Amino acid sequence: MTRSELIFNKVSRILEWIMIVIFALLVLDVLFQVFSRYLLGTSFTWTEEFARFALIWMTILGAAYLNGKKEHLSMDFLYQKFSKANQKKASILIEVLIFLFALIVMVIGGLNLVYTTLHLEQLSGTLRIPLGYVYAIMPFSGFLIMCFSVYHISNIYNNKKENQS
């Protein structure tokens, strides 16, 4: 196993655990909300906001995780019609486009959003935490997606070299 595969597996495992913890907190939060509403007769306003933020984090981290595992949604009808050589070229093109999307939209756009909300000192309505911290997941996940794309491109390229030998 190469060094890049070890790093990839380690990062994927860490992402899995982070998402498990977020999901567990989300479940506990919703259960607490139901318990407090129906058994205590009171509703805590912070539980809805926490659930929303946890779902945002889990979704965006999940997108990065699935991209890394190459288990994201794809329509490959046309791709399957290509020859093996063209499939490799198309795979590299797809990974480059994913990399560029993650760079421009998620990292650059996300950093701009984080900076703006922190600079304007915007706070969440109930929890009163800076929204920049909530939005920070966007550039972080974008960076992970970029790293995964580089990893996938190197794997495609290395497989291409091995097949030519």
Results as ranks from 00 to 15, higher is better:
T2L: 14
R3Q: 10
I7A: 08
I7S: 10
I7G: 08
N9E: 05
K10D: 11
V11Y: 07
V11W: 10
L15D: 05
E16K: 13
W17G: 12
I18D: 08
V21M: 15
F23C: 04
A24P: 11
L28F: 13
L31E: 09
F32I: 07
F32T: 12
F32N: 08
Q33M: 14
V34I: 14
R37Q: 06
Y38D: 13
L39S: 06
G41W: 00
T42E: 02
F44R: 08
F44W: 11
T45F: 12
T45V: 10
W46G: 02
T47D: 03
E49M: 02
E49L: 09
F50P: 08
F50A: 15
F53R: 00
A54G: 05
A54C: 02
I56W: 01
W57V: 01
W57F: 02
W57M: 05
M58H: 07
G62F: 01
A63W: 11
A64N: 02
A64G: 03
Y65E: 05
Y65G: 10
N67F: 13
G68L: 01
S74H: 14
M75E: 15
L78P: 07
L78T: 12
Q80S: 10
K81G: 01
A85R: 11
A90R: 12
S91N: 12
S91L: 10
I92R: 01
I92V: 05
I92M: 02
L93S: 10
L93E: 00
E95A: 07
E95H: 08
E95R: 06
E95T: 04
V96Y: 10
L97P: 00
F99H: 05
F99M: 09
L100E: 01
L100C: 00
L103V: 06
M106W: 11
L111I: 07
V114T: 07
Y115L: 00
H119D: 13
H119E: 03
H119V: 04
Q122Y: 09
L123P: 01
S124W: 00
T126K: 13
T126E: 14
R128L: 12
I129P: 05
P130G: 03
P130Y: 05
L131K: 06
V134M: 02
V134Y: 01
A136S: 15
M138S: 08
M138Y: 07
S141L: 02
S141I: 00
G142A: 09
F143R: 09
I145N: 02
M146E: 07
C147E: 06
S149H: 02
V150D: 08
Y151L: 06
H152N: 15
N155M: 14
I156G: 10
N158C: 11
N158S: 15
N159P: 13
K160F: 14
K161W: 06
E162L: 12
E162P: 01
N163R: 14
